[in-house]
Design a binder for these strands. Structure first.
Lengths: 141, 141
DNA sequence: TTATTTATCACAAAAATTTGCAATTACTAT
DNA sequence: ATAGTAATTGCAAATTTTTGTGATAAATAA
């Protein structure tokens, strides 16, 4: 029932999709879960409230949401994690040594994004970029 | 049998892994395939030459190679693609409208990488970054 | 409201990926 | 060379993800 939720209903309809109880519940659940969640965690949360909802519906819905950027995805430590796209774009550095996730402010990608727009006419999705690498600690080992 | 291959054998041993015929054949195959390949394409190529090699071995081996950056992965159009890590780092812009893949030269990430190193002590893997977004053509629609 | 249309759903089946395990084989040290 | 050891493999089973399909229900128009 958040502000996001209102937009979401309207946008779904504009895109020609139907607003079903399943989709609304899944979106509600995602909002309440907050941070990163796996498909299975999402399923379990949804299933607690509506046991009849099938896994296939979770998969199809999350993919639909992701396709239209209602939900963002990132592969962290081999697991695909999903997160609601909110008003605070942020990025992650994932260390492949210790699997630590370091949040990164938005502005670091501004120059790059601007360059891509100007030189390539390409509008990058820069709401949620995940870069992998090695953190300071793990570089020493 | 390429130059890569020599390094690869040595590096595998240094990391404490064994150099098996399976691993060598999979590496050979990846070298010969060149560009992006799905797990299934890799399996089929390997299977043609060595039918006894199981899919599980392909999965385990590709994941091992990816973990140690012998092989790079990128999710393109929902499919995970694998590619040998070669001497020519490059990046991709993937359009989520038309699924077109636009190659991008290495130097665009230099500033960003330097910043991450200096400010966060983080050493990013910038050999093969994939950014998603909308290309010039698809933005008009 | 009610009827019509068609996207979406639950279920089942298929396909893809991961995991457990006994047999094999690469490496190491004798 | 040979023996010892431990990682790796193929196979089978388990798990996860995707897909096909008839029944259901959301949107639209009368």
């Amino acid at each position: 029932m958040s502000h996001n939720q209102q937009n979401f209903v309207q946008q779904l309809r504009e895109l020609g999709y139907r607003v079903t109880p399943q989709r609304q519940l899944i979106m509600d659940t995602l909002c309440e879960m907050g941070g990163h969640a796996t498909i299975n965690q999402i399923y379990e949360n949804v299933h607690d409230r509506a046991p009849a909802i099938d896994r296939a519906t979770i998969y199809r819905t999350i993919h639909l949401f992701n396709e239209h950027q209602f939900v963002l995805s990132a592969v962290i430590n081999g697991q695909t994690m999903y997160e609601i796209a909110d008003a605070h774009p942020h990025h992650h550095l994932v260390c492949r040594g210790c699997q630590r996730v370091i949040p990164l402010a938005d502005h670091h990608f501004h120059d790059l994004a601007q360059h891509l727009r100007e030189e390539h006419g390409f509008a990058p999705d820069i709401n949620h970029i995940t870069l992998h690498g090695l953190c300071a600690t793990c570089q020493e080992n």
